[in-house]
Design a protein around this nucleic acid. Structure first.
Lengths: 261, 261
DNA sequence: CGGGGAGTTGATAGGTATCAATGCAAGTGG
DNA sequence: CCACTTGCATTGATACCTATCAACTCCCCG
């Protein structure tokens, strides 16, 4: 798509609530429930009703699980009766096309819910894989349905996700060139991490160059070249998967297609 | 995006219930309510509760409206308190990006609901424009909310639409080449018209070449060349906006990226 | 020490945008 | 009813972005 100008940035809306400064350097110990919920996007599901500012929250049964790099959280087609939230780390979502090729759909970072968009069908629409050591929190969907406050919260999440994945985003992505796409992804991650209460300028990409390329519909070599170029142009710095945004404004401008970068 | 192979077709799911054989050749007369509802996707909203097979349906207040080509149904940002369904014709949805360029998001054909994805926010997310003479049916959202049967129907529609617009579709579209995209669009329209009870092989495109190009992230010249090519290869025939699918199987194969067409 | 995956960098080929010219049909005003 | 206008569609020539192929480095892990 060699549009020289154009592009809306109706940008990726930030939808999250938490972070993961050291994605792959956390304790591999078994997990006690209830850690790290302060910024969790789904907290309203675990602590429904009667959350009067002072009273101790009534939690639903929420089980935490530790995944190692490459470990499968769930697979496409598998029945879904859990609501899963990432507590620490990052989850890659992917499908396989008819030719057996992997297609990376994106990454779910700390505090975000995974697989929300297939919850209504009770059947996962894609595979979810840990990109490093990752802790997730699982809540029974039955439990969620029981409380009407929870239901309202669920619908709110669904709507938010729908807004996030809506056709506007599609069509915008569809006509971005390589630099615009990558810049948009970086800005998106930045906003999501910031919404999580963490640094908007320094975070872990979670995905490999190949995964990013796959996710954006580009070649891994293109990602590599672009990261080098962004770096030379003082937009950001990358070291392995660790990214530091240096000039977010300029990066956003690139994502917006301004100035024919 | 010059991917030579690949592509899933997790295809565009068909979501509709009606058609428009003569999109721009219908009576311009004022409209009496209640026509043409047999296949309407939103019929459960107009005729909620007590639809025992025999009893006459109890309708909600549904006002029909006639639009001429180019007329605006609603505009981005405008408050939304109506649920709108296309009775006859087709509605183009679009936004303008930061550079003031038009971005066509897609077309809503007869029987489909327009603007469902912004209903929860009560504010339209894009403009909706009639592509020709078009009749729409408007139902007050308040009325819909009143009946719990209606609510369930609404959630069902929301879910269906969410499934339709999900990130899988995005990522799949993101890596289709020009021929694959156009073939996919044609197959999508075919399936949607068929789901509407009308011909899967002959229908009105609604959108102009430019709009199609814009919608798919391609140049209008590319669309023109491809339609010619598809025609020469015996896949379909087009005359102005009127399309006739000749070999749907082959077209689907192209959309799927089989055989590096 | 060897092997393999991930990342980088260079050279080339290919798909599509872009520019430009022409044709065609519908609408408009005389 | 006919010139004029205007928008849409088609077709050709060329430029450019990015995929692809290939070689190399680096690092982790056995």
């Amino acid at each position: 798509m060699y549009h020289s100008k154009s592009i809306l940035s109706e940008n990726f809306s930030a939808t999250t609530k938490e972070n993961q400064e050291q994605m792959s350097e956390l304790s591999p110990n078994p997990i006690k429930g209830g850690s790290n919920c302060a910024f969790c996007q789904a907290v309203a599901l675990c602590q429904p009703q009667s959350i009067s500012a002072s009273s101790p929250p009534h939690r639903l049964e929420a089980k935490q699980r530790l995944l190692k790099r490459g470990q499968v959280l769930f697979k496409q087609g598998q029945p879904q009766d859990l609501l899963t939230v990432v507590c620490t780390g990052a989850i890659k979502s992917r499908i396989y096309n008819r030719n057996g090729e992997e297609r990376v759909l994106g990454v779910t970072i700390t505090g975000e819910a995974v697989g929300l968009d297939s919850l209504s069908k009770r059947k996962y629409a894609y595979d979810a894989i840990a990109t490093g050591e990752t802790i997730v929190c699982e809540i029974g969907y039955q439990d969620v349905q029981s409380g009407s406050a929870s239901q309202a919260a669920l619908y709110k999440m669904l709507m938010a996700q729908m807004a996030h994945n809506n056709k506007i985003l599609n069509s915008v992505m569809g006509r971005k060139n390589a630099a615009e796409r990558l810049a948009a992804l970086m800005c998106n991650l930045s906003a999501r991490f910031e919404a999580s209460g963490y640094s908007a300028t320094e975070f872990n990409l979670g995905l490999s160059r190949s995964d990013i390329a796959n996710c954006l519909g580009l070649a891994k070599e293109t990602i590599s070249r672009l990261l080098t170029r962004f770096s030379k142009d003082g937009l950001l710095a990358v070291n392995a998967k660790r990214a530091r945004i240096i000039n977010l404004t300029a990066l956003q401008a690139v994502a917006d297609g301004a100035g024919n970068y």
